[in-house]
Simulated scan of single mutants.
Amino acid sequence: MSAGALDRRIAIRRAALTNTGLGTVTTWSEIATLWASRKDASDGEKAVAGTVQSTVVSRFVVRSSVMSRGIRPTDRLTEGGLTYEITGIKEVGRRDRLEITAEARLDHEDNNQDQGL
């Protein structure tokens, strides 16, 4: 894979549980920033509780390294202002790349508010 194909900067975030005495709080912190390529696999919309939600499934390809091989399905990925839930990780080629399949959800109502609509 050429360096030019890795045209996206992604951040991998991992959850940490903290007991506050009143309950458990989940905080997400960045554990890695990697160069990746992105290809959208599918998108869709559905009505949920009176709102319309859009989803996009994307495949990100990164170079295989100690850092990228430490990514877990329970981690999250952020890119282009979206937060993705990781749904799969697999080796590509001769163990030199990893493909991360992830899904992002975007609520149309929130999107319209962000754009001042």
Score class of each variant (00 low, 15 high):
2 S>L: 13
2 S>T: 13
2 S>C: 10
2 S>E: 15
3 A>D: 14
3 A>H: 08
4 G>D: 04
5 A>C: 05
5 A>G: 11
5 A>I: 08
6 L>M: 12
6 L>Q: 08
6 L>D: 06
7 D>P: 05
9 R>W: 07
10 I>C: 13
11 A>D: 04
12 I>T: 00
15 A>K: 09
16 A>E: 14
16 A>G: 10
16 A>H: 10
16 A>V: 15
17 L>A: 13
18 T>H: 15
21 G>E: 08
21 G>R: 12
21 G>T: 11
21 G>V: 09
22 L>P: 02
22 L>M: 03
23 G>N: 07
23 G>W: 08
23 G>K: 09
25 V>T: 15
25 V>P: 05
27 T>L: 07
28 W>E: 10
29 S>F: 08
29 S>Y: 07
29 S>K: 13
30 E>R: 14
30 E>D: 14
31 I>L: 10
33 T>Q: 15
35 W>Y: 10
37 S>N: 13
37 S>M: 09
38 R>L: 13
39 K>C: 05
41 A>F: 03
43 D>C: 03
45 E>S: 03
47 A>E: 13
48 V>T: 07
49 A>S: 12
49 A>N: 10
50 G>C: 10
51 T>Y: 08
51 T>S: 14
52 V>T: 14
53 Q>W: 07
53 Q>I: 09
53 Q>L: 13
54 S>P: 00
56 V>I: 13
56 V>S: 01
56 V>D: 01
56 V>G: 01
56 V>A: 01
57 V>R: 02
59 R>Y: 05
59 R>S: 10
60 F>D: 00
60 F>Y: 04
62 V>C: 03
63 R>V: 01
63 R>P: 00
63 R>F: 01
63 R>E: 00
63 R>C: 00
64 S>Y: 03
64 S>V: 06
64 S>D: 08
65 S>E: 04
65 S>Y: 05
65 S>T: 14
65 S>P: 04
66 V>I: 08
66 V>P: 06
67 M>A: 15
67 M>D: 13
68 S>A: 13
68 S>Y: 00
69 R>E: 06
70 G>A: 15
72 R>P: 04
72 R>V: 07
72 R>I: 07
78 T>N: 03
78 T>H: 00
78 T>Q: 12
78 T>I: 09
78 T>M: 06
79 E>M: 07
81 G>N: 11
81 G>T: 12
82 L>C: 03
82 L>G: 03
82 L>D: 02
85 E>F: 08
87 T>I: 14
88 G>I: 00
88 G>W: 01
89 I>P: 11
89 I>K: 05
90 K>Q: 14
90 K>L: 12
90 K>H: 12
91 E>N: 14
91 E>M: 11
93 G>L: 05
93 G>E: 10
94 R>K: 08
95 R>D: 12
95 R>S: 14
96 D>R: 01
96 D>E: 10
97 R>M: 04
97 R>G: 02
97 R>V: 01
98 L>H: 00
98 L>V: 06
100 I>G: 02
100 I>L: 04
100 I>Y: 00
101 T>H: 02
103 E>A: 06
104 A>E: 00
105 R>Y: 05
105 R>L: 14
105 R>P: 02
107 D>S: 11
108 H>M: 11
108 H>Y: 13
108 H>E: 07
110 D>L: 14
111 N>P: 00
111 N>R: 14
111 N>E: 04
112 N>L: 15
112 N>P: 02
115 Q>H: 11
116 G>N: 09
116 G>I: 06
117 L>Q: 10
117 L>H: 08
